[in-house]
Amino acid sequence: MKALAIDTSNLVMGVAVIVDGRIVGELTTNMKKNHSVRLMPAIEELLNEVEVEAKELDRIIVARGPGSYTGVRIGVTIAKTLAWSLKIPITGVSSLEVLARNGKYFDGLVCPLFDARRGQVFTGLYGNVSNHFQLVQEERIILLTDWLTMLREDSKRVLFLGNDLEMHQAIIKEGLGERAVFGQAADHNPRASELASLGQAREGEDPHTFTPSYLRLAEAEAKWLENQKK
């Protein structure tokens, strides 16, 4: 099976190609540059480099969010359009899960985290349960302080991953003390190769009905619903 994996849900842009379970190519940048301008050239370049034609692909795998609304949409739009027009399935994987995989051998809990502004974060909790790395606390958007209060109820060490951690490190240390462990530079970039590995093993979906996972309503929608309640 030949699959293309795409992640533009945050600052990191990742593209990978997996052929019969082997990652044959991967491209990652971690810069404040425009995904809309760069993603298609990156896909074209990587496919060329690994000598796979778009028409040979059997599956498109995409990080479906959460993250930057616009970023997620760029990846998802390209992924679903490729999948639909090539008549192949699309598989979506949580952007947080892709990042969490960087801590899959950590002995404890793994907390991937993206900043969601106004003290909020997109996060969830992963860990090894009966030798299987999996979700242990549902992904959500939550005030970081509330999240830390929840994490205090456990006694395991927690590995924090994500490029937005710098701005939250102090408050996490304050909340969890010695239990908080922080990943190093390379651990903070979600890898398209991990996305590819995860996605190839999962069910394909219909590209037409495939949508991003924003984990949050559009602001106008939330306000409107709020007003309806009054």
């Binding site: 809309s36 993603l39 298609m40 778009a54 390209i78 359009t81 490729l82 027009s85 090539l86």
Partner: peptide, 10 residues
């Protein structure tokens, strides 16, 4: 724009 680019490539 991105849908169009994806179609053009594919």
């Amino acid at each position: 724009v991105n849908a169009a680019k994806a179609l053009a490539l594919a």
